[in-house]
Design a protein around this nucleic acid. Structure first.
Length: 301
DNA sequence: ATGGTTTTTACTGCGTC
DNA sequence: GACGCGGTAAAAACCAT
């Protein structure tokens, strides 16, 4: 798989602070990952960038025609899918009397829109999804997909005794993987305040029962976020990448991809001036040092 | 349920600062 | 002595059958 970091257009490179690593000004957007990276050294500067493109892909002109919409995209993040009007807040220049009437109207309108009862659970779940997505620096489209997954799960009566938080977390996890911005289960469980094990179980069940198109986690997909969490140098990350690319798929099969990433980063750091301890890398990857050692042996043949 | 594999937990010995 | 590293054994967890 090629790591598609594409500069959409040189003029697109946002002027911002210089890269803390190498001082370069230019930045590139990796739209696939929703990350902004330094153009010269590849350091991840901002993982939470928003995806400026549409969430659909068009493969030819007729599809583009069919899928393009006027007006704002309907979003699944609103419990009413973004339909319905809202009363604006722009009340400059109105008398205070009118303003208070408008405020009252707005309150009523909101109550009518967010009708309690029927889908209060859904509203809570969607805001939870949004919160988790924000906390993990995931692009907006991931939360959108997660919301869609959650709705589907709900329609099929999935939650069934499971906590709303666990199901919301599982939806986000699945969505993140579908968008190729994988996050680790323990990170997710931490922000969702769900037990690790429960999060894992719920996630697996969700994927299975809804037969979601969740791609297998590859070590290369996991590398950027783990390297970034550690603050590994771009050079070290690159070397780790080479280790992983050289890896024989046979030895990798059945192993936790995160453990392979940990081993690769650890090995790569040995040659640099900033060495990581096994414990540091293992913790960032969510595995133990024992496992890391085992994977180091795998990588070394 | 079961068996095979991986991962974790707990513990030990060795070298270095 | 504390710390990092390397290893082992047993238990837990996972997965396919």
């Amino acid at each position: 798989m090629t790591n598609a970091i594409e500069a959409s257009d040189p003029t697109d490179a946002q002027a911002g602070e210089a890269c803390p690593e190498c001082g370069a000004q230019a930045r590139l957007m990796d739209e696939r990952r929703g990350e902004t990276v330094c153009a010269s050294c590849g350091l991840v500067l901002d993982e939470g960038a928003i995806d400026p493109g549409p969430e659909w892909r068009a493969f030819d002109a007729s599809q583009r025609e069919k899928r393009a919409r006027t007006g704002p995209a309907r979003t699944t993040m609103r419990h009413d899918r973004g339909l319905g009007s809202q009363i604006g807040f722009d009340s400059h220049g109105l008398s205070s009397d009118l303003r208070s009437r408008l405020n009252r109207l707005r309150r009523h309108h909101q109550r009518a829109t967010y009708r309690p009862g029927a889908d209060r659970g859904l509203v809570r779940a969607l805001s939870e999804i949004e919160r988790i997505g924000g906390a993990l620096d995931l692009p907006d489209r991931v939360a959108e997909t997660a919301a869609r997954i959650y709705r589907q799960a709900r329609e099929e009566g999935f939650p069934h005794g499971r906590s709303l938080e666990a199901t919301a977390a599982a939806s986000v996890l699945a969505a993140a993987r579908i968008h190729n911005v994988p996050r680790q289960i323990d990170d997710l469980a931490a922000v969702a305040q769900v037990e690790d094990r429960q999060a894992i179980r719920t996630f697996r069940k969700l994927v299975r029962e809804l037969s979601l198109p969740v791609p297998a986690n590859t070590p290369l997909d996991l590398l950027p976020s783990i390297a970034s969490k550690l603050g590994a140098s771009p050079a070290a990350e690159q070397e780790a990448r080479e280790h992983l690319e050289a890896l024989d798929p046979t030895t990798a099969s059945g192993k936790n991809p995160a453990s392979l990433v940990a081993a690769a980063i650890y090995l790569a750091s040995l040659g640099t001036d900033h060495r990581f301890t096994q414990e540091e890398v293992a913790e960032a990857a969510g595995v133990t040092a024992v496992t890391l050692r085992a994977r180091v042996k795998d990588l070394q043949g």
